[in-house]
């Protein structure tokens, strides 16, 4: 069961520590993920400055302001991007801001429509009057270049093919200067396109980004420069945002499991290294 790479059989406890069977690891992982579902772990959660900044940016938008929410994600990253999408839409709709949703991802379009419809019902938002869904648009760069200059021209129809120009939610919206904020929820580096092609076009525009956790570190240089006003970092960021908007969603529920999974991984790395250090010390 436990073998050391390059040898046929385990020798002693220190070698065994470095070669725990993968099935044991998998079972341990499943246990730490599932257990907190039945025995909830409630731990205090501190809101990170990146999340707080995004929240404050949305709070600072004047009433009736206009926000574009782009959802460039698919089922693969649903666990992180879905709670983010829901949390940000809840905040925007709670603040009675006008919301336009669309996606550069084919699945993301369907997803964001379903989520926005659900949240809109909770807040009494009327489609066409308070919010709109522009559907799926491929080739991000050309769409961004176009929306900077002419939003109704770029999105002439919504995702159902209905003309947008007569919708009350589009009234007074001509170009990027009429938009107060853009929030991108993504599992890709599309924030670079927003920064490069759109953000500088309106100095007052706030650009918030909700990436998967794995992408969060690479976005910090852009938050430092002010090109991104705030970041909701993966599921942890979503849990913090849920706390800020007083709701309990998937992200909040997941923090116990994810905490334990982190502890497990750290313990496994320590165990493996203890075995490695002792073995190396003996050999030398």
């Amino acid at each position: 069961m436990a073998t050391t790479p390059g040898t046929s059989a385990p020798r002693d406890i220190w070698d065994r520590l470095q070669a725990i069977d993968r099935r044991v690891l998998y079972v341990l992982l499943l246990v730490v993920i599932i257990l907190p579902l039945f025995v909830p772990i409630r731990l205090p959660m501190v809101t990170m400055p990146s999340t707080q900044k995004l929240y404050q940016a949305v709070e600072s938008i004047p009433e009736g302001g206009y926000v574009i929410v782009s959802t460039t994600w698919s089922g693969g990253t649903r666990a992180e991007n879905m709670p983010q999408t829901e949390a940000i839409l809840r905040h925007l709709m709670k603040r009675r801001l006008r919301v336009a949703v669309f996606s550069f991802d084919q699945q993301g379009s369907q997803f964001s429509y379903n989520i926005a419809s659900r949240v809109a019902r909770d807040f009494g938002y009327e489609y066409g009057k308070d919010w709109v869904h522009w559907g799926f648009r491929p080739v991000a760069g050309v769409v961004m270049k176009s929306l900077v200059r002419d939003i109704p021209g770029t999105f002439t129809t919504d995702r159902d093919g209905k003309p947008t120009k007569d919708m009350p939610v589009m009234q007074g919206i001509k170009d990027i200067k009429d938009v107060d904020a853009i929030v991108e929820i993504a599992a890709s580096g599309i924030y670079m396109d927003w920064i490069g092609l759109v953000v500088g076009a309106n100095p007052k525009l706030k650009f918030g980004f909700c990436p998967t956790a794995v992408m969060a570190p690479e976005t910090y240089p852009y938050m430092d420069s002010g090109q991104i006003v705030g970041i909701m970092e993966g599921m942890r960021g979503a849990a913090e945002y849920e706390q800020l908007v007083n709701t309990v969603g998937l992200a909040t529920k997941g923090m116990g499991s994810i905490s334990l999974a982190h502890v497990l991984i750290m313990l496994l790395i320590i165990v493996g290294n203890v075995g490695y250090i002792v073995t190396r010390a003996r050999r030398s």
Binding site: P138, V139, V142, V143, S146, L147, R149, T154
Partner: peptide
């Protein structure tokens, strides 16, 4: 011409799906 270019790009890009 930015708007027509975006529609052209969307149609062409979409056809790669």
């Amino acid at each position: 011409y930015l708007v027509p270019a975006s529609k052209l790009g969307s149609l062409l890009g979409g056809m790669t799906l």
